[in-house]
């Protein structure tokens, strides 16, 4: 990782980013958006397209070459689901420290294998996620430009557009963010809520954390026990109270299985863990505002 600054949350304006799948439609469009944000994109990777350029950025045939030529230390993945795992293994083998996988529809078996392979090595955010943004510094992913404001609230969420909506609301109300992380809507995510809360607890730029959860799995419950141990307040908002059981609600991971994974369980666990529970987007802003005023 880039020296000196990455203690903030994983990335800074010095982070050197590779875009895997940059010659594709989504990869090229989002690379331009990231460049406009100010992200330091140093290379693209597309097998068979080495030597080309996209938006003035050199494209390499492999991540290894890209790293050797540019010293890249983070990667963002836009390759199709069927080859996403391969791209992830390749990034890790090339020594990339932070990999953000945007691709939706990666088979869960592939993700489990990647997570196992990455243990003690690269950090993974996603798959099926909007990525990570440090306002004024760096954006790796697909969060829209122009909604963020530098500040002191850490945001972590399993959702995409709901995160954008909340971040924009915070910004419109003059509440800036230290880092926003979308951990993604898949059943098995790389970074978990617990991982993100631990990072925010250590981050000197963060004063409070907004956690946005949804039905399915136990990621919210697993993080709830940690909130008591934190010195920073956590505001939590969980969606899917109206979701019926055994139906996948858009995100592959958003499904109530049997009796587990309901919004009510998550809200109960988070509240017991010491989080403040918000009832809607407007209430999120109110609670964050009040929390910051108290500190």
């Amino acid at each position: 990782m880039a020296q000196g600054r990455w203690w903030l949350l994983l990335i800074s304006r010095d982070t050197r980013v590779i875009v895997q799948g940059m010659t594709g439609k989504a990869g090229s469009f989002q690379a331009r958006q990231m460049l406009e944000f100010g992200t330091n994109i140093v290379a693209g990777v597309s097998p068979g397209r080495g030597g080309e350029e996209v938006h003035g950025v050199p494209v390499f045939d492999s991540v290894e070459e890209g790293v050797a030529e540019t010293g890249a230390d983070a990667s963002v993945i836009f390759v199709p689901a069927r080859s996403a795992a391969d791209a992830l293994f390749e990034a890790d083998d090339a020594g990339i420290g932070l990999v953000v996988c945007i691709t939706e529809g990666v088979p869960v078996k592939d993700t489990m294998r990647v997570c196992r392979y990455f243990e003690g090595r690269a950090r993974l955010i996603g798959p099926n996620c909007p990525g990570i943004t440090v306002p004024g510094e760096c954006k790796i992913g697909i969060m829209p430009n122009g909604i963020h404001l530098p500040g002191r609230v850490g945001v972590v969420s399993r959702s995409g557009t709901l995160t954008y909506e909340l971040v924009e609301l915070l910004t419109r109300n003059g509440i800036g963010q230290s880092t926003s992380i979308g951990i993604g809507g898949d059943p098995v995510p790389g970074m978990s809520f617990l991982d993100a809360l631990s990072l925010f607890e250590k981050d000197e730029k963060t004063d409070a954390v907004l956690l946005v959860g949804e039905i399915g799995g136990t990621s919210e419950e697993d993080a709830a026990g940690f909130i008591h141990k934190m010195s920073k307040p956590v505001i939590a908002y969980v969606v899917g109270i109206t979701a019926p059981p055994e139906k996948t609600m858009g995100h592959a991971g958003a499904i109530i299985s049997g009796r587990s994974g309901t919004a009510q369980d998550k809200i109960y666990a988070l509240e017991k863990g010491g989080a403040m529970i918000a009832s809607g987007p407007g209430d999120v802003v109110e609670k964050v505002k009040r929390t910051l005023a108290k500190n």
Binding site: S159, G185, T242, M249
Partner: peptide, 23 residues
């Protein structure tokens, strides 16, 4: 657009005393 925002919208409808017909 988006699963999270869709669930949030349904929950808000319920919160105002309505019942969503679909996700």
């Amino acid at each position: 657009n988006g699963a999270g925002l869709a669930m949030a919208s349904m929950d808000l409808i319920k919160g105002f005393g309505g019942e969503p017909a679909n996700f």
